[in-house]
Simulated scan of single mutants.
Amino acid sequence: MLCRMFRSSLRRLQLNASPKNIRSYSVILPEEPFIYGVSHIEPRSVPQHIPRPHYAGGSPTVLQDVDGKVQLGGDAERSLRAAAKLATSAREFAGTLVKPRVTTNEIDAAVHEYILAQKAYPSPLLYSGFPRSICTSVNNILAHGIPDDRPLEDGDMVCIDVTVYLNGYHGDTAQTFLVGDVDETGKELAKITNDAVEAGISACGPGRHFNGIGKAIHSLIKDTNFSISPHFTGHGIGTIFHRKPWIIHDLNDEPEVMVPGHCFTIEPCIIEGKTPTCWIFPDGWTASTEDCARSAQAEHMVLITNNGYEVLTR
């Protein structure tokens, strides 16, 4: 039965038939009656002195990477690195807050204040109307989960996706965190997701084809009981939140080649099982696996240099 046919009274899904590894986790479903869109969610406030991207009502930025590349060796690269460093710090801070009975709304509020304290702006806030400052994707949610008042439960998995806008540049990173006692399959899912990102990173370098990233991740996943979501890509990043090059995480024939100055994210969603399909909640953002299987995601920013690459969000 498809996940969208379940009712919210169905709260637990039993997995892993092995008696030594039986574990259940909460299936995340939209509340009923459905509320369409996010206009009912009050966005968090940001002090006026915090510079913000154009989509959030700020002054237009000077786009120094409109060709999809950042100029190396100057202010642009230094600003990009600073944004990535802050995003990494905010991601790690968010991870310290993950525990049973804490709500994702509470995590969002704390990370929001953490970013503002650094005189930066939380990039997701008001991006195409998104009402919160981070994305929190729990269990069967693939991506773009909206923080809410549901307490995290022992055995949950939550991906926290953090992006900051600092001095005109975005820094973007994500990690899936384990909540309390997660079953062995969940732990394996989280590990192979990070391994998939590393496999994609290893395929990077000047003169190498972008399709090598998808090939490397496919080679890692193909003989496992996991699959790669084809619905979400990585993206170029700099003064613009999302731009070319688009990074496809599964097999593809993308012909373009990496050159020095390209900066992009690698962020595969890896799914438990072999049904990599999804549907979108009535809020227009939250993406769930169609069969309620768990998903995990991790994300790093990669900068192509003259001699190789650097991961900016370690």
Rank of each mutant, 00 (worst) to 15 (best):
E106D: 07
D223M: 14
W246G: 11
Y309D: 00
D75A: 15
K99P: 00
R150L: 03
P43T: 14
N225H: 14
P282H: 08
F226I: 13
S229N: 09
E254W: 13
G238P: 01
S18P: 06
G186W: 01
P268D: 03
D223I: 09
A296Q: 03
S18V: 12
I201S: 11
I266P: 02
L15T: 12
Q175V: 11
F6Q: 06
N306D: 08
A76G: 03
T277W: 08
I240H: 03
D172H: 09
I266D: 01
T136W: 06
S79K: 13
A143I: 11
V27C: 05
K244R: 10
I35P: 00
S45T: 15
L189P: 00
G37Q: 00
L152I: 08
A120I: 08
E32C: 05
L63Q: 12
F264V: 10
N140K: 03
P100T: 12
E113T: 10
C159A: 15
D65I: 05
G171K: 06
V257M: 04
K85P: 00
L125W: 00
T136P: 02
T233V: 09
T239K: 11
D108W: 07
T224D: 07
A203T: 08
A298V: 13
L189K: 00
R12Y: 07
C204A: 15
F93R: 12
G212C: 07
F281W: 01
